[in-house]
Simulated scan of single mutants.
Amino acid sequence: MYSRIIGTGSYLPARVVTNAELESKVRTNDQWIVARTGIRERRIAGDHETTSDLAVAAAKAAIAKSGIAPEEIDLLIVATSTPDVIFPSTACIVQDKLGLHGFPAFDLQAVCAGFVYALATADQFLRAGGAKCALVIGAEVFSRILDWQDRSTCVLFGDGAGAVILKRSPEPGIIQTRLKADGRYRNILTTPGYISNGQIVGHPFLKMEGSAVFKFAVKALADLATETLELAGLTQSHLQWLVPHQANIRIIESTAKHLGLDMERVVVTVDKHGNTSAASIPLALDSAAEQGKFSSGDLILLEGIGGGFTWGAVLLRW
């Protein structure tokens, strides 16, 4: 048995923050942001919107488009680095808000690689017979861990959620998954603060060594793409689409060049969404699906990389 994506969904908060708006708050400009990152705008969650709220909206859209009854879901994984609370898990909160109960629901934290980690995990459950129908969500409110005076980070991120319904199938959907991590690089992209005795200890906002992250990501994603295809017994020429983590247009272009893919075959949403961490790949996937870009049987590579460092890929047939 395999697992196949049978429905996608997404949700973006209503508030749009453009580069022009950021120019009035921090010393930066639209030209610099676009040239270095490709980002033109991002969405920011409302004051009363939580990660689980975004996740539920994306989940409902995915359920509706898949045509399943919600009661068919027997596994729920939420990839997030910005949970509603320390515990219970955001997944359990989402499960309750969807009116479901009684099956495994848990969060998975691998930062920007979170969705591919979660999708690979759900795929293993379904292949092994531990579940028949999984709801996999990537959801983030990164705006709440940003220092809005730090121009090196606050211009990069946005909020949102994306979801997929994954169901057991005798026909290949997900063909190959590959996950990696290297904790030696944990300090170049981190939010190191934590709560102790009711107080914040350490730095509570995201910190990033941009050039070091860029160099690592370009090589890691290129190598992983080749490795994933080889493990599946396929070559770059078989690939129709790349759906990458939407962090930086230059990283995306570098990965596409390595794979010999024209940018018309790469799903790009970073200009509209910014970096939504674990939500970026499912948001991009749903955007492309809604536009009818994918055809039945297309070979698609999903790739993500995030703090940890964690990185991973999922190769699938549409």
Rank of each mutant, 00 (worst) to 15 (best):
G158Y: 02
P172H: 12
N248H: 12
E171P: 04
F142C: 08
G198I: 08
A181C: 14
L242W: 01
L206Y: 10
Q240C: 13
R144L: 03
Y185K: 13
L126A: 09
L156D: 00
Q246P: 06
V136L: 11
R178S: 14
A217W: 04
G158M: 04
E230D: 12
M208C: 11
I145F: 02
A134E: 09
V243C: 12
V213W: 01
L234C: 05
A247C: 11
D150N: 11
D147I: 01
L229Q: 01
A212S: 14
G138I: 03
I252M: 07
S254M: 07
L146A: 00
A161R: 03
Y194I: 05
V136A: 08
Y185G: 15
C154Q: 00
P244T: 00
T153N: 03
K180G: 02
L229C: 01
A134Y: 05
E230Y: 09
A225W: 02
A163D: 01
S143G: 02
T235L: 05
P204D: 11
I251C: 02
R144K: 13
W241D: 04
L224I: 09
A161D: 08
L239R: 08
L206N: 09
G202A: 07
T191P: 04
I252P: 03
F216L: 13
F142K: 01
G138Q: 06
P204H: 09
K180Q: 13
L189W: 08
R151M: 00
L135T: 05
F157W: 05
L224P: 08
C133Y: 04
T235Y: 07
P244I: 00
L221M: 15
I137D: 02
M208T: 09
H238G: 10
V243W: 00
F205V: 04
M208L: 13
H203L: 12
A220W: 06
L156V: 08
G138S: 11
Y185W: 14
I249G: 07
T226G: 15
G202Q: 06
L156H: 03
G198Y: 10
S152Q: 05
G193M: 06
E171A: 14
G160M: 03
G202N: 09
S143P: 02
D159R: 02
I188H: 06
D223V: 13
I200K: 07
A134N: 07
N187L: 12
A131R: 00
H238D: 15
I175K: 03
N197Q: 14
P204C: 10
M208Y: 12
I252S: 04
I251M: 06
D150H: 02
R184S: 15
T226C: 12
G183C: 11
R184D: 13
Q199N: 13
L242E: 05
A232C: 08
H245Y: 06
A128I: 04
D223I: 11
S152D: 06
S152N: 10
T177V: 14
A128M: 13
Q236F: 07
F216E: 00
T255M: 09
P172I: 04
T226R: 14
Q236R: 15
E253V: 02
T255I: 14
L179K: 07
E209V: 11
A181N: 15
R168I: 12
